[in-house]
Simulated scan of single mutants.
Amino acid sequence: MDEVAGTILTGEEFEPIRGRVVIDDGHIEAIEETKTDSQRIVVPAFVNAHTHLGDSVAKEAAVGMGLEKAVVPPDSRKHRRLAAADREELVTAMRRTLQFMQQTGTISTLDFREFGVEGATALREAGDGLGIDPFIFGSDERAVLEVADGFGASGANDNDFSDERAAAREAGLPFAIHAGEPDPTDIHPALDLEPELLVHMVHAEAEHLDRVAEQSVPIAVCPRANTVLDVGKANIRQLFDYTTVALGTDNVMLNQPSMFREMAYTAKHFDVTDREVLRMATTAGAEIARLNCGVIEPGRRAALVVLDGDSHNLAGTENPVSAVVRRATGLDVETVLC
């Protein structure tokens, strides 16, 4: 058995306990309250609820551009750059991004991977042997469901995805779709497809959210990307009243895929508590991907981020939850248990 001592943020409320986590065969055996001199802060590892890792070949390529010119298929800067990249360049770039994400505490990411079977298999190759395991929403063709974990659609105004929705259902795999990013016009059509995940919902209104609640569809929000692309600001406080809300970093081209940065931005710019933000970055994403992590409690997978609470940045912290959400960075990560 192994153990990690310090201040442990336990359960769904992240209650701080001074003590140790006992780990056996990759799972949490026990949480023991006991005296310890350790200044570590132990939190659940992060699950990034929405990324586009293919954008790793085009970092900062769309600075100053709006949504359509930056990312909308098929003629955006992003898609032209992806089409020009060879497989080796793409796999190498995505692998390095995955390694950065793992270093900064993320153990899984729900990724929308472009270019069908070829794109999905490239991401599988990029993640091979790493501690971070991408959950791949493939695209472009039904055959992608043979190699991906689900289907990810760009948006209901872009195409008719009814065949892909039916294929995903037949395969027993989730269907996810962008909705309500530039405006609300694609939200009802997206909901008509009965997705397992909606991404963005910046312009969601009560009539949409009533349907979200009826269908029990979780939502992944991406606050920093929405700001960069100037599409608006999701009403996260309102979304909480209707469904599960998870946190994603979106396009690697636009933002560093750091959950620390996304949490800090969300906590400081939205009407949400620090505990809610931490839940969005851990528990919610894990639930959507059906991972047995995101909460520190016995029986869960021991996917943990261990922070140096005595780092120059975190020393003197009075509230460990707020310290993790608002102040911590990748430099404070001591180790990541996958």
Results as ranks from 00 to 15, higher is better:
residue 12 E to S: 14
residue 12 E to V: 15
residue 20 R to G: 06
residue 22 V to A: 08
residue 27 H to R: 15
residue 29 E to H: 14
residue 31 I to W: 12
residue 37 D to G: 14
residue 42 V to P: 05
residue 44 P to H: 10
residue 46 F to V: 10
residue 52 H to K: 09
residue 59 K to G: 09
residue 63 V to W: 10
residue 67 L to A: 09
residue 79 H to Q: 14
residue 81 R to F: 11
residue 84 A to D: 15
residue 86 D to S: 03
residue 89 E to D: 13
residue 89 E to W: 10
residue 93 A to N: 08
residue 97 T to D: 08
residue 107 I to W: 07
residue 107 I to M: 12
residue 116 G to A: 06
residue 123 L to A: 02
residue 126 A to M: 01
residue 128 D to W: 12
residue 128 D to R: 13
residue 130 L to E: 08
residue 132 I to W: 02
residue 148 A to C: 07
residue 152 G to D: 01
residue 153 A to Y: 06
residue 160 D to T: 05
residue 163 D to P: 03
residue 164 E to N: 06
residue 164 E to D: 05
residue 180 G to E: 04
residue 184 P to M: 05
residue 188 H to R: 13
residue 188 H to T: 12
residue 193 L to V: 04
residue 198 L to A: 10
residue 207 E to N: 11
residue 208 H to L: 04
residue 209 L to S: 07
residue 217 V to N: 01
residue 218 P to M: 06
residue 228 V to N: 07
residue 241 D to G: 07
residue 241 D to C: 08
residue 243 T to A: 08
residue 245 V to C: 07
residue 247 L to A: 07
residue 273 T to G: 13
residue 274 D to S: 12
residue 285 G to K: 06
residue 287 E to G: 03
residue 289 A to D: 01
residue 294 G to C: 01
residue 296 I to W: 00
residue 300 R to A: 08
residue 307 L to Q: 04
residue 307 L to V: 05
residue 309 G to K: 01
residue 313 N to T: 11
residue 314 L to H: 00
residue 323 A to F: 06
residue 323 A to N: 00
residue 325 V to E: 00
residue 327 R to A: 13
